[in-house]
Design a binder for these strands. Structure first.
Lengths: 369, 369
DNA sequence: GACACATTCGTGAACGTTCACGGGAATCAC
DNA sequence: GTGATTCCCGTGAACGTTCACGAATGTGTC
């Protein structure tokens, strides 16, 4: 029997009952079990080269002391388990959880951990989210809504994959082919016989240009400079697409909520009663539009067709069921994770070829159009 | 000018262009900037006692080398920033994101980080989720769906707050007063004049007892032993409540999805065409029930009233708008975080008084009932 | 009984950072 | 011009764990 040769454990023999004094370290466990550090390590990590009874004794001592290995010490010596930050503007919008779910699943498969930040309640920006995440993660995936360069600067060499915005100096980016989406939707509505089309865009978060619901652009000359900076990228694509095919498209803006969209749509229908086809920025807002159409006594799609955007599960549950430009959100998550994987393993170079993906919406025909 | 006195930096003068060789450490930056470790620390952490030009020089060197301080080394010496794990069975169900959003917000306010795990896609259990989270977090909040004791054992002394399940040996727990909810709903339906009531329960994940939709308990004798273990806690509360007030309640079970609930409801309406009031396990499934009622040509609530459960935003968007037993999910998140806060700061003792909260649903009257 | 070998366990070193302290140079006061 | 004060900056120590190696003990073989 070896007498404990020192190794500077905490002097006090802390009984299991005394409150949270310090924090039990591996040396405390070693002392309590009458073994050395290394043996404790072997016992806790299911390593070979230890007698079963010793292992049991150590584990019991660890349990009694409430010992939990320090993830910091462990990480320091073993080299990081990678943990990725996930910056999301609003978990309340069903679009994001569907995406996040996919990211978490695939990240977990790779043994990564996901640190989630739902910025936006407090009016924080994507960059602030990255700033908050930065000290804790090895990479970030996020819908930042702009300022990719600044975010990448904060992260330094660590990979950043941004979604739905120009990649800029970010390591990678995933964007969506809104021109294709817009063309698909408008063509479909036209083929259905719709003649007076409208697009409901999301109002810029910061901007407060005119009352919500005010008509932004009518007639065949959208896409001109004054419009830029007011419309979202999606809105610009719709304006371009309408102009290209010579259709008239009324563009209105609405805050990003079903209730707001309902109100805006109601006003739109008063201003332009002949509207017979509406495309909406996202499915949640489209649900509001459907409500407004019902309010006004119109039948959908007979009197007015509606197309949403995103393809969240909610759409199927609405009445009428929502036709939508769907994005396969699990696929988007997969693209983001695989892109990040490539960047982390080095098989992809930041900003290099293959780091900017363009994904397409596809039209899911249901009842509303 | 001090000549670099050694301090064992990496021997190679790694140019900024060479690939990811090792990882730049604080010593590399110090050497590159011609200063010491401590000065680098001061520069990176905005500490006083450093000349502005020196700070700039160090920061430039850090930038060029792509230096990122090791969170492990930092955490090791500074004592942990707390990071909490959030175990969630299914982010796809709108119930959970609403809750998670609240948790993330309040945790962020406290300077915590949230490591999210959406277990359940791969058929994992809550305990496995905790096992995955454990090495990375200082505490866990989660909907584990059982096995709280086992989960607490994995975490040792670290706090565990479980929701919607008996706390067992967990540090804290938040449960819901389903008896009150059931009574509220059933009384409301009865007052409305409903006489043939049904409750659609969620089928147990693992169990496959009988075809989905089979009638489990009819008549006035539910709550007996054979039923236990088949019905959820919510189901049992409804059975109890119905029995207590002498109402007849048909209980059927359905997998947890709108589509499944739709099918189950359809079958229920064939079996018991006189059903004129239905309560459903959650809002998503209630949406399916509404669809089934529409399919069968019934008017809601005239022919049959429907009450959902949870109070997710989706309910407002359905047609008819869903009456529901709502839970204020932000409040639930707040309760969980505050409980955890108390446990972490020591103002609350694990399992002690004030660690088991009972929250109540309130009936939100909309159109469906 | 001597040797090789397997099994079990312990000790120095290292991971990268911050804290506590101390030293040197410049500035100020008189 | 001496001492006190301030401003910068550097060095030992420590955080808690694992890795690499070596020591001690037991087990088998001839």
């Amino acid at each position: 029997m070896t007498t404990s040769s020192g190794e500077t454990s905490s002097g006090l023999g802390q009984g299991a009952s005394t409150g949270a004094s310090k924090r039990a370290t591996i040396l405390d466990v070693a002392a309590a079990a009458g073994v050395s550090r290394q043996t404790v390590t072997r016992a806790m990590n299911a390593m070979p080269g230890i007698r079963p009874e010793t292992r049991a004794r150590v584990q019991e001592a660890a349990r009694q002391l409430g010992y939990t290995p320090s993830r910091f010490a462990k990480g320091l010596v073993q080299g990081a388990r990678t943990s990725v930050g996930l910056a999301i503007p609003d978990l309340t919008n069903p679009y994001y959880p569907a995406f996040a779910s996919s990211v978490v699943e695939l990240a977990t498969q790779r043994g990564w951990h996901v640190v989630m930040d739902d910025y936006g309640h407090g009016g924080a920006t994507g960059v602030e989210s990255v700033q908050h995440l930065a000290p804790q993660v090895d990479a970030v995936i996020g819908y930042l809504g702009g300022a990719a360069d600044e975010a990448q600067a904060i992260l330094g060499r660590r990979p950043l994959v941004v979604l739905d915005q120009p990649a800029g100096s970010a390591s990678g980016g995933i964007t969506f082919d809104y021109d294709h989406a817009a063309q698909t939707a408008l063509e479909h509505l036209q083929a259905r016989g719709c003649r007076q089309l409208a697009y409901i865009d999301r109002a810029w978060a910061g901007a407060d240009l005119g009352a919500p619901g005010s008509v932004r652009a009518g007639g065949p000359t959208p896409g001109t400079d004054p419009v830029r900076g007011v419309m979202t990228v999606r809105g610009q694509a719709f304006a371009r697409s309408a102009a290209a095919s010579g259709m008239a498209l009324t563009v209105v803006v609405s805050p990003e909520s079903a209730a707001a969209a309902r109100q805006v749509t109601r006003r739109l229908l008063e201003d332009r009663p002949g509207t017979d086809g509406i495309v909406v920025f996202n499915d949640v807002m489209a649900a509001g539009a459907l409500k407004a159409l019902a309010d006004s006594g119109r039948a959908v799609p007979a009197d007015c067709a509606v197309i949403g955007m995103d393809g969240i599960p909610l759409g199927e549950l609405l009445t009428p069921e929502l036709t939508t430009l769907a994005l396969d959100l699990r696929e988007v998550g997969r693209a983001a994770v695989e892109l990040l994987d490539g960047l982390l393993t080095g098989s992809l170079d930041p900003g290099g070829p293959g780091t900017e993906l363009l994904l397409r919406h596809h039209l899911v025909l249901r009842q509303s159009a």
